[in-house]
Design a protein around this nucleic acid. Sequence first.
DNA 1: TTGTAAGCGTTATCAC
DNA 2: GTGATAACGCTTACAA
Lengths: 336, 336
Amino acid sequence: MADLKQIEIARLAGVSQATVSRVLKGDPQVNDEMRERVLAVVQELGYVPDARAQSLRSQRTRLLGLVVHRAPDALAGDPFFSALIASIIEQAGRHDYHLCVDTARTARSQRAIYEELLRTRRVDGLILVESETHDKRIERLSCEGFPFVLIGRYDPADAVCSVDNDNVGAAFMATDYLLRTGRRRIAYIGGPAGLTVTRDRLQGYKNALESHGVGYDPRLLAFAEFTERSAASAMAELLSLTPPPDAVVGLDDLIALSAMREAKRHGCRVPDDIAFIGFNDSPLCRYVEPSLTSIAVEIPVLARKAAEMLIALIEGREPQPKRQIVPARLVKRESA
Amino acid sequence: MADLKQIEIARLAGVSQATVSRVLKGDPQVNDEMRERVLAVVQELGYVPDARAQSLRSQRTRLLGLVVHRAPDALAGDPFFSALIASIIEQAGRHDYHLCVDTARTARSQRAIYEELLRTRRVDGLILVESETHDKRIERLSCEGFPFVLIGRYDPADAVCSVDNDNVGAAFMATDYLLRTGRRRIAYIGGPAGLTVTRDRLQGYKNALESHGVGYDPRLLAFAEFTERSAASAMAELLSLTPPPDAVVGLDDLIALSAMREAKRHGCRVPDDIAFIGFNDSPLCRYVEPSLTSIAVEIPVLARKAAEMLIALIEGREPQPKRQIVPARLVKRESA
DNA sequence: TTGTAAGCGTTATCAC
DNA sequence: GTGATAACGCTTACAA
């Protein structure tokens, strides 16, 4: 069973080993009668070619690589990555590719992992997430001509293949929705001020206010760390304004959620007194009370497109366009 | 850069290609002077051996396989798998192994995936989760002598290598706690009835009832798929009983949460009218209202042990003991 | 101690 | 059309 190779099939079918290979590859040049004979033996013995030998010979492993920069416990709680992984696997599977996932916590181990995956040719291509603005890895991969696709933003945008969600558009969508439902004093709680996502979404927020002719009040802006407490205290401060905000756009679901809790603790009714919108449409949203309206960034779409692009690159097709933007989607629930 | 092989290193270092291989393998037989020469060239050119060639030659891919039986969207929201994946990767990495994750939704595709991973020798071993009581895959793998470790239970227990959390004990712990806090009509919502985890936890539930001398009422049992709707409708049915349950043990946090929401929608107060306990202590638990009491199964420990055992098997060491049990832990919150 | 050479199981290029 | 045969890049007897 274990040592079943083409040569064995060939012997039993009374043909040469090369013919077995041809039949398996679907070569149209082979005689029907021989094809039948070979396929019969293959079927009977359940022969499947050895991926290792194929990899060496074809210089292709049919393995996509994904490296995640999170400690295991951080990864564990993050719905983004599990969604990403699951969707990449699915899309890869359609093209008969598999996914190899690695984690790299420290900067050193990151370099090592990339080095390893790239140089050992263990994977045919890489999907990169959470890249920084000037990312050595990216320059490196570009130089080497190694196939890779970025999830996120990069400048110059057309230098690399990338997919991203439309952060400006997503925040516009959230704010616009609140304005349409009659809210006028809309606060924005961002994450750390340096993050591009914080800034992009702030931009979308401003755009929406402007498009409705609603004045922009800088006092309604707050920035929080990614902790419950930080978001809560930002919210407390916003509530001390007169008049207080009647809606809040939070950078992500956890921030929105923590803010919402704080508001409730101050006796606000949600959504009557104040509405809340988060981002990511994480599983959490459905389970809290009131359930949290959220802007879904379509991670499965993102992942599918990334995998699709990467496979195209690997197989020598130049993806067009090189940059794809996935629109966001409003998931309406009780909080707004 | 791309076509850098040992023979090239050998040429530049003025040695034979075999010597390069020996140096890289850390063979103590080689002359120090030669080793220096070779390593210098290796360093300078940043040579790394081709994993594909190594795989073919050594008959080892250094890849562990994990197959997950969930649709991508079900996987996406499930903290269990992300925790599992993350911890396996980490442990594997310590031994210079990588992880290949696949999903298989349908029974047919499951077979196909196993077939593929096993027969193509794409991975050196498999970690199996969510096995069923009489699992063809397991018999198959055993027959073939393919290295694999089960996360979960299997009979006879010493036929295969496995790690498991103490599901019977965990459910006992949950049910016992509810009984001690005065609950008497305790319902159990399992997952699909064939799953061993469903049955083991049912057993623990029954054991606890018995140990408290509380009668077992089969009407208080329900089985749900791993979807919100399914758990909710199971809960709705339980609520229609007279009298309704005063506590629910859910197979996992998501099931417990979905059930809890359904109960609240029916006007039940939690925990006053009805208490809820889930399993896994997922991040979600803290954010819902009321926060969910949960039995923590130590997934990282489970994953680490599984990976450790699998690697031992692959490398020809017989793990002792063949079965490892990881105890559970009660995390008390508001819902019970 | 180092070099030579025979595979590992495929695929692909030749002749026939 | 089909069958030898040479790679693919590495490991490892075996020879020197």
